[in-house]
Design a protein around this nucleic acid. Structure first.
Ligand SMILES: [Zn+2]
Ligand SMILES: [Zn+2]
Ligand SMILES: [Zn+2]
Ligand SMILES: [Zn+2]
Lengths: 131, 131
DNA sequence: TGAAGAATGTTATGTTATAACATATCATTT
DNA sequence: AAATGATATGTTATAACATAACATTCTTCA
């Protein structure tokens, strides 16, 4: 992959942590796992990864997650299971596109979209029912 | 209004600040305006106001805003103009309902929905065009 | 009135994020 | 190679946001 080549050492380390973690992780937890000397190194690396579309911040969790670089930020929604921490990423959903179209009709120019739906995923819902 | 009667002195003060401000305001800015002795009083009041549906937090801004109590949290989206700070609140939009239905079909049980779309509002877009 | 509960006050601390500046690393030109 | 400039990293301090733990005051109603 071409974009990988551009990553610096710190950026690669953070990306690896995000991938190994597989779910949202806070900047200070990344700090521990990387062994960087300060939080600023984490935030600088995250900024770049987010720019490249390799990571995203979940605002309602103050945490960061690896995402597929092709997924357009503006058209992505996250369903966050508050029980198991599992993240379901909805990509290119028609519903999101329609929301944006609705805004476009109001002459609102979208540049960034934060869609984070909290709740319980199917696994957790059914495990609750069965006890 | 019936719900007003339940509010304590601190809660009323915070609500007034939110109303006078008319746009998102941070907890520590509320602290200054109310003259409370500590941040904790602000957060306690905000918690209650949010419970009552009188206020909401904008996660991506770390700020709080007055909302109409009838607006159901799960069905509300905010369009946030990053230029003028103006908030457009989309209530009961069909698009949001559809997004939730989409999640329901995945057996995801929604309990809280954070939808914050950043960009430029029509006023700001057109003022940019004209310079 | 005086106990119980609610609200507020106080202090300290935890958590997340950035500012400001110093140093190191690496490629390019001379 | 030495000088230059650009990018990356390190360091320290602090800003900004949020909660824990406990003390005091204020209501309320038996
Ligand atoms: Zn789950
Ligand atoms: Zn799940
Ligand atoms: Zn605007
Ligand atoms: Zn506007």
């Amino acid at each position: 992959m071409d974009s990988m080549i551009r990553l610096t050492s710190n950026q690669r380390k953070v990306l690896e942590v995000l991938e190994q973690t597989g779910k949202p992780i806070g900047a200070y937890a990344i700090l521990e796992k990387t062994g960087f000397r300060g939080a600023v190194q984490v935030y600088r690396a995250l900024e770049k990864l987010i720019d490249l579309g390799l990571a995203q911040k979940l605002e309602s969790l103050h945490a960061y997650i690896r995402v597929s670089p092709k997924d357009e930020t503006e058209l992505t929604a996250f369903a966050i299971c508050d029980h198991c921490g599992h993240i379901h990423q909805l990509t290119e959903a028609r519903e999101i596109r329609q929301l944006h179209e609705c805004l476009a009709q109001m002459d609102f120019a979208v540049c960034r979209s934060v869609i984070e739906i909290h709740g319980a995923c199917s696994t957790c819902v059914s495990s609750k029912r069965n006890k």
